[in-house]
């Protein structure tokens, strides 16, 4: 299987009150296409920072991140935005749906900016598929937490990305919804053949992934 991501000797430091804070230390790993990887670790271990680096939102202090063999550090911000637009789907703990858009419009939006035709029908299909066809005209504030996260996942997969980066997607959900949402993500990753990187504290969920990377104090725990 081909590599989708290749992270070489990644270090990430912050300056805080004149002191160097080392967030990530010497990180090396690869993600293959259609691979499901869970990233676990304690709070403050650098999981979210790693996800931000992988989505091209932040630059590592040293090291390189290759996405489809393209080095993030060597391409323009515009190109990175373009990659994020076409190839990376993001799912957040807090759902972050566009508040004044309905569920359907939220799902349609990435397809519209990616110039994908027939976006309305496609969005309708996805929403029906995840059991929210009857809620398509509701605003996010009218949906439950679980429903909001399902819409967020529908939005993330709507434009057929190559990978979804999910930052604790079940962190705000109850047991039943955690099950529902995690199954949805994993099922879709098989069905649509995209890679999945899942930052989570849920050990049950990690067992469903192909591989687990554990971070400890900025290092990968071997």
């Amino acid at each position: 299987m081909k590599n989708l991501y290749k992270l070489n000797n990644i270090n990430l430091n912050y300056q805080l009150n004149g002191n160097d804070i080392k967030v990530l230390k010497n990180i090396n790993f690869e993600i293959k296409k259609n691979e499901r990887v869970a990233i676990i670790g304690e709070s403050g271990s650098g999981k979210t920072s790693l996800l931000m680096l992988m989505s091209g939102l932040e630059e590592p202090t040293t090291g390189s991140i290759l996405f489809n063999n393209e080095d993030f550090s060597k391409i323009s911000e515009k190109k990175k935005t373009e990659i994020r637009k076409k190839k990376i789907g993001l799912v957040f703990q807090q759902f972050y749906l566009i508040p004044n858009y309905t569920a359907l419009e939220n799902v349609m939006f990435p397809m519209q900016i990616n110039n994908i035709n027939d976006e309305k029908n496609k969005a309708n299909l996805i929403l029906s598929d995840i059991g929210l066809g009857h809620r398509k005209n509701n605003l996010p504030s009218e949906l439950s937490g679980g429903e909001q996260q399902r819409v967020a996942i529908a939005r993330a997969i709507s434009f057929n990305p190559e990978i979804i980066l999910a930052d604790e997607p079940t962190g705000n959900l109850d047991k039943k919804n955690t099950e529902l949402v995690s199954n949805l993500l994993l099922d879709y990753s098989y069905k649509k053949k995209f890679s999945l990187i899942l930052v989570t504290h849920n050990m049950k969920l990690t067992k469903k992934c192909d591989r687990v990377i554990e971070l400890l104090d900025g290092h990968i725990k071997v």
Binding site: S55, E77, K78, T81, E82, R84, K85, K86, L90, F92, Y96, L97, I98, F109, P110, I113, N114, R155
Partner: peptide, 8 residues
């Protein structure tokens, strides 16, 4: 959110 979805 717009930025996360790829709008520059």
């Amino acid at each position: 959110i717009y930025k996360s979805l790829g709008l520059s």
